[in-house]
Design a binder for these strands. Structure first.
Length: 356
DNA sequence: AAGTCGTGGGG
DNA sequence: TCCCCAAGACT
């Protein structure tokens, strides 16, 4: 009988656990079925970037029903794609998703490259996603390192160098424990473990299949790994937004392709740089909503002060935009900030109307 | 190579 | 309430 090294034992213990406890997710091939569809694997991986499984679920269903194959997605108009992505966040992913689908159709005959290197060259596909798709969809041995894997590996080997400096050591360790066979299952097993057992806070070590292999489990505080550098304080910004209503329609603009909420439909707003007295897009008798709309982005928080007015039948705000039926605003594909802003305006209008 | 880029859920 | 965090990529 072959004596197993520690690295080999980790993989075999984890895969044995995965064979029994794997989460059943829409983008995973059911047990015993054919290999996963590269299109669905890629789509899920992009949606899952910095996004929870629970949040992705409905979007994945919607996208795969509407665009069953990569060629369907490649043929979608930009506005439809962006509107369908609305609410999921990190909108550069949606722009890159479309660019990637079109590149696959145009440059690769509608088939995804089956190597890590080929995948890595596609828009929106970085080191993680290339490795994940190569392993999961094409059975390649690839070292798949996401935040789950970083945490699990840092604990398995009790790596106490703070992130992000620890990344090279973590990656090297992940490489050592990645098996030649079933690398895709191994990657998904690591992520399942990180999501359900080896969680950031209060990990469930008592039911962990790797606790006998884990250096952090042997310490007083397994949750102390990985060590992270202190983070910076989040600045606060102020802005103004305008709800311009005309005959049952509201004025929507399209944000520039680059930058925050890039390429998305939006209510017109100031640049949020705290200009004290911004100029509205059109002259009108403005009403200001008393309570600003609070919204927290990744690197700052925003208080958006909303103003609303009705304008005459021929009035048109300056700049590009479109009149959108208020009753079907839900179909405009607004980012969450503007969904909240619209809700605040409607509530304010209703309150004022009730008062007479 | 640090900064930029969303949103919702959980402790 | 606030803070943390999530199957990261791009510049």
């Amino acid at each position: 009988m072959r004596v197993e090294g520690r690295e080999t034992k980790i993989a075999s213990d984890l895969l044995a656990h995965y064979d029994v406890h794997a989460r059943q997710l829409p983008w995973r091939a059911p047990p015993g079925a054919n290999a996963a569809d590269p299109y669905r694997v890629w789509l899920s991986e992009v949606m899952l970037q910095q996004t929870t499984v629970a949040a992705v679920g409905p979007y994945f269903d919607k996208f795969t029903r509407r665009w069953p194959a990569v060629a369907d997605l490649a043929a979608a108009p930009d506005v439809d794609l962006m509107a369908a992505w609305a609410g999921l966040g990190y909108y550069a992913r949606a722009r890159n998703l479309l660019a990637c689908a079109r590149a696959v159709v145009r440059d690769h005959g509608g088939r995804f490259p089956d190597t890590e290197e080929g995948l890595r060259a596609l828009p929106g596909v970085g080191a993680y996603t290339a490795a994940a798709v190569a392993a999961i969809a094409f059975g390649r041995r690839a070292v798949v390192v996401d935040a789950n894997v970083e945490r699990v590996v840092a604990r398995l080997f009790a790596i106490d160098t703070p992130l992000p400096a620890a990344r090279p050591a973590i990656r090297a360790a992940a490489d050592r424990i990645t098996p030649d066979a079933r690398a895709g299952d191994f990657a998904q097993a690591m992520m399942d473990l990180g999501a359900t057992i080896c969680t950031p806070r209060s990990p469930a070590c008592a039911i962990c299949p790797l606790r006998q292999d884990c250096a952090a489990f042997a310490t007083a505080d397994p949750a102390a790994f990985p060590v992270k550098a202190a983070k910076k304080a989040k600045p606060h910004r102020l802005g103004h937004g305008w709800w311009i209503e005309r005959d049952g329609h509201v004025w929507l603009v399209r944000r520039p392709d680059k930058g925050l909420l890039g390429g998305m439909r939006a209510l017109p707003s100031s640049d949020w740089s705290a200009a004290p007295d911004p100029t509205p897009p059109v002259a009108a008798d403005w009403t200001r909503v008393a309570q600003p709309v609070g919204h927290v982005f990744t690197h700052f928080s925003l208080a958006l002060s909303m103003h609303h007015a009705h304008v005459e039948a021929h009035a048109t705000p300056h700049g590009e935009g479109e009149w959108w039926p208020v009753d079907s605003l839900g179909e405009a594909g607004l980012p969450t900030l503007f969904v909240r802003a619209a809700e605040a305006v409607r509530k304010d209008q209703d309150a004022r109307n009730a008062k007479g």
